[in-house]
Design a protein around this nucleic acid. Structure first.
Length: 365
RNA sequence: GGAGAGGUUCCCGAGCGGUCAAAGGGAACAGACUGUAAAUCUGUCGGCGAAGCCUUCGGAGGUUCGAAUCCUCCCCUCUCCA
């Protein structure tokens, strides 16, 4: 960690494929691509690290194939760091297709219905084949709402699995394994989870199971609560979060890393993010609006295309609409992180955050 | 000229005596989306604040307690034969 401003942290994280600057946003590239974009475009956007997903890549094209291709970096032609999620999230999101036991999770493929077994050991083996720089322990991400009993039980399973992941990890020197703190919205459970993981001494810690439907204030309360508990010299990754304002508030609570499908998914569906709030660019109100999405934005989309044109592309169902919108929104997220890092270095993070928060949650008319 | 089919709410198209302001698509409009089963999903889509009422199924008449649906005439499309 290089700087601190309040609880906000400014740091660097070394990986085999380069150093990344934190706080950082990691675009999601579930199946070894950030949807609609090329690695070249991601590089232009100054993306430093992207995500892949164990469950999805295991099912298709298969981790063995990715290994044969020389690992995920080679396979997708991305030479910067990659983080793979363990499939723990799919335990929740594909809840209709799986059964959890103490040993692991029996899944039914969402693609062809075939049965598969994920154990912590298996997930470590798959992530080793994929070859990401940062890998996640296999966890169970409890849904929301869930009873406290359920969350507590699930937490125990996740802790056991974390140990098994650690014990079965093949190349700890090449892949940093993060343990995942669970515990829902309950501070005592979060504390127990964090402390036991810290005892196991992971190179980094993830916070999972947030932004799954609970109130924002609960999410912020939990990250604020965890801040003093988490080791100061290790990265903290808040999984799956979030909106631009979520990122800023959580940076203020000591989070270093984020990933979220929101900028890319929403972009594909016609909503982009700007410093003035969300803009539903497919809306009729932009039909004859010949300004860029954001006249101060320096992204490729804003430098070259108007709202009216992008709206037209959405109306016509053109693929370019999704690409241009994704480029803009990712640029905005990454630029927002850049500004946050600068603000921490300049020790005016709170001021920066508060001025941004005033607008970010608006819908731009 | 002869034989036949048809004109339905923005478009296509179902309905063929009451349960029809009228199925289903499309378009349009509004919105949701947080470790991606997502170029997906939800809602609105004749008018009036609601119960309800009003106007609407090519046009004009008629039959009927009641018509988009039945009858008559008219206008217009399309197909086939001469």
């Amino acid at each position: 960690m290089k700087h601190k401003d309040g609880n906000a942290r400014r740091g660097e994280l070394k990986t085999p494929h380069g150093v990344i600057q934190t706080p950082i946003f990691m675009p999601v590239g579930t199946i070894a691509n950030v949807k609609t974009l090329t690695p070249h475009e991601l590089t232009d956007l100054k993306a430093e690290i992207i995500l892949g997903n164990t469950y999805h890549l295991y099912l298709r094209p298969g981790h063995e194939l990715v290994k044969k291709a020389g690992g995920i970096h080679n396979f997708m032609n991305w030479d910067k760091p990659v983080l793979t999620d363990s499939g723990g999230f799919q335990v929740m999101s594909l809840s209709g297709l799986r059964k959890i036991t103490q040993d692991g999770v029996r899944f039914q493929s969402h693609i062809d219905g075939s049965y598969h077994m994920f154990t912590p050991e298996r997930v470590m083996e798959i992530q080793n084949s994929l070859g990401a720089d940062i890998i996640m322990a296999f966890d169970e991400c409890p849904p929301y709402p869930a009873t406290k009993d359920y969350v507590a039980k699930s937490l125990k399973t996740t802790l056991e699995w974390a140990k098994r992941c650690q014990d079965s990890q093949k190349e700890p020197d090449k892949q940093a394994l993060f343990g995942i703190v669970q515990g829902g919205v309950h501070e005592d459970l979060r504390q127990e989870s964090a402390e036991k993981l810290i005892e196991m001494d992971f190179p980094g810690y993830s916070i999972g199971g947030l932004a799954v439907g609970e109130k924002k204030e609960d999410m912020f309360r939990i990250t604020e609560f965890l801040n003093p508990i988490m080791p100061k010299n290790k990265p903290r990754y808040l999984m799956g979060v979030g909106t631009p304002s979520d990122l800023l508030v959580n940076i203020g609570n000591g989070i270093d890393m984020f990933d979220c499908v929101m900028p890319t998914r929403n972009a594909r569906k016609g909503t982009v993010f700007t410093r003035n709030g969300r803009m539903i660019i497919k809306a009729a109100r932009y039909k004859e609006d010949f300004r860029p999405i954001d006249d101060e934005c320096t992204c490729y989309t804003c430098r070259n295309f108007t709202r009216a044109y992008i709206r037209h592309l959405f109306a016509a169902n053109e693929l370019l609409a999704m690409r241009l919108a994704s480029i803009h929104s990712l640029h905005f997220y990454l630029e927002l992180m850049h500004m946050a890092r600068k603000a921490i270095e300049n020790r005016n993070y709170n001021e920066f955050m508060n001025s941004m928060l005033k607008k970010l949650d608006n819908i731009v008319e």
